[in-house]
Design a protein around this nucleic acid. Sequence first.
DNA 1: GCTCCAGATCGACCGTCATCTATATACAAG
DNA 2: CTTGTATATAGATGACGGTCGATCTGGAGC
Lengths: 117, 117
Amino acid sequence: MTVDLELSPKTKRAAGERCCEPVVYPDVRREQAMRMATVARALADPVRVQLVDVLRRHAGKVCVCELVPLFDLSQPTVSHHLKVLREAGIVGSERQGLWAYYFVLPGVLGELAAWLQ
Amino acid sequence: MTVDLELSPKTKRAAGERCCEPVVYPDVRREQAMRMATVARALADPVRVQLVDVLRRHAGKVCVCELVPLFDLSQPTVSHHLKVLREAGIVGSERQGLWAYYFVLPGVLGELAAWLQ
DNA sequence: GCTCCAGATCGACCGTCATCTATATACAAG
DNA sequence: CTTGTATATAGATGACGGTCGATCTGGAGC
């Protein structure tokens, strides 16, 4: 008996068929993709994820002097990670005298979350 | 007149006070932070964000031969990006003859989205 | 003025990553 | 079995990123 098999790829191609529906990709998406990738890159390190986690859980401004001892890292390294998060727009900072306080700016993370859904 | 000013940092420290409430950080969060960072690292490149975007918008399996011409990149480079997404558990793949089809596995992205909220 | 301290920045080191070309693999067609 | 085609892998290379020690900055207290 003859079965209604799918055409083999080469036969498809020979017949001008395609392996799947053509995918259109508007250039408008590129800049959004770059924004999402920038935010994701800022979250691409466990230390920064934990920093964001602490800042969000604390729901207020947290002093750097409290953040540094949470990790087995030097103070410059923690400062570097905070800078990466700040430059990505994920957190903001504020100085009061000698202390510096960091806090989460929910806008950017919200945009990434919205894209993920 | 005497104003009720905040104590200066040094005075606080001398008095045994702290610059902010101490932050407790349970170690349980570390492994979750590493998972989130791993997923974020997989999304830390605009090409991979666009790949996920296309696969999700298409809502089905998409052939690699359709994905490659969307970018100004060599076929091995696109294949590399797809491998990164696959190893992060973000997408799955399936071969049919010469063609390979990729599709989004929503679980991992959902976990990241849930953490972001 | 000088000293001390919290935090940021600098410069260097080293591992990881994105990209390419070249090659391998696996399958289909003749 | 040989040829062609769609992906995957390997190896090389240049760029980027995390980390540190050393240093700079600027505010506080004397």
